[in-house]
Simulated scan of single mutants.
Amino acid sequence: MHRLFYITDESMIGHIRRETKDFCNQHNCNTIKEDVAIVVTELASNALKHAKDGSIIIKEILGSKYTGIEIIYMDKGPGFDTEKVVQDGFSTAGSLGVGLGSIQRLSDECHFYSHIGKGTCIVCRLFEKSKQKSVIDKYINPETFSYSHICVPIVTESYCGDDVAVYITKEYALAMVVDGLGHGEFAHQAAIMARDIFFENTDSDPEDIIASIDNALYSTRGAACSVAKIIPSHNKVIYTGVGNISGAIVGQKRINMVSHNGTLGMRNNKIQTFTYPWNKYDMLIMHSDGISAKWSLDEYPDIAHKDLSIINAVIFRDYHRPKDDASLLVLKEV
């Protein structure tokens, strides 16, 4: 689960810094803990000075050979010229300051996207210092697909009832978004069970995975769930969904994929597979109903060429529904 913080006043700066250090300790990211704390402190401070509706998400980067922390910053401020602001000494308030140059230096990866009049998103990745750069390069440039996701609970809960799972091979990518019915611990249990079934059946097609999840969730409160399988060699996406998970293929045009009404675990659902065309430069975007489906990447100039976490950030910032758990996945070929 990822942590979401709203930057509402100065007291939140210290709160976010402390919670971020605890998050690093929990995920064995001790060598970068202080640098991560400086980055979130600088981002939160800048949000209060220059922006409005600022928020920060912190998430673990976890792989078989690498660990680290990703920080996603979002605001609805006036925006800025990214080339100028990353230079130390430049301040949009007209005063001297370290600006965002220090954030860029402390991060192993740093991506900016700012749209004048709509706001700014910044993604920072810090990797454990014991890891080799070749490992970092492998994370940033995987062999076949890359992806980014966000998964946060409703603000009143410590458990997230949504989950995201991705399985990648050289031949295909398999992706799932699940939304446990309701909120809290019991919704979380349903989502985790769906995730377990997904990883037990990664050699199956989406329809069979959804059917297996439907059977397994009978003892839980149930869930909405969709599974997509991208097979580049056949230029197609196989998609099966039950419930209110949205899936879209975004390329030269947007194709909204079909899910049937229902709740997995009730064992009376219509489970049907749909097949859609896939182009190498397309993106797969899936999300729960904690994200409004009214988004359009056409609103954001040149966004399709940005880091996938930046794409996640702009959709989340502008279309997140705070009164629900929310999960969002963006995936594409490399």
Rank of each mutant, 00 (worst) to 15 (best):
L4S: 02
F274Q: 06
I150D: 00
S233C: 13
I7T: 00
Y167M: 05
P153C: 13
S95L: 15
P153N: 12
S259T: 14
N269R: 03
S95M: 09
K21C: 07
E42T: 10
V242E: 06
G119V: 14
G117A: 07
I230E: 03
D53P: 07
L100G: 05
E157F: 06
L126Y: 08
E60I: 08
P142G: 10
D137M: 09
N244M: 08
I311W: 02
K21S: 15
C124K: 02
D208C: 04
S146T: 10
V237I: 15
K294W: 05
E207Y: 02
R18K: 14
G101S: 04
A326V: 00
I150G: 02
F186I: 09
K270F: 13
C160R: 00
P232F: 05
L48M: 07
G241K: 01
P277H: 04
S114F: 02
H287Q: 12
F80S: 01
I69F: 08
W295V: 05
N28K: 13
H183Q: 10
D35G: 03
H260M: 08
N46Q: 07
D9H: 11
G265Q: 03
L329N: 07
D302V: 06
T120A: 09
H287E: 02
Q272V: 06
M257S: 04
F80E: 03
I32F: 04
E42K: 08
V330I: 07
T275E: 12
L331C: 05
F186D: 13
L48C: 03
H260T: 15
R221K: 12
S288L: 10
I249E: 01
V258K: 13
V155F: 08
S158C: 06
F127I: 06
P277R: 14
F127K: 01
L106D: 05
T82L: 02
I311G: 03
S204G: 01
N279A: 15
N30F: 11
G180S: 06
G97Q: 02
I249S: 00
I72Q: 12
Q252G: 15
A175C: 15
H260A: 09
V164P: 00
Y147F: 15
A47Q: 03
Y66T: 00
T220Y: 14
G79P: 02
I72M: 15
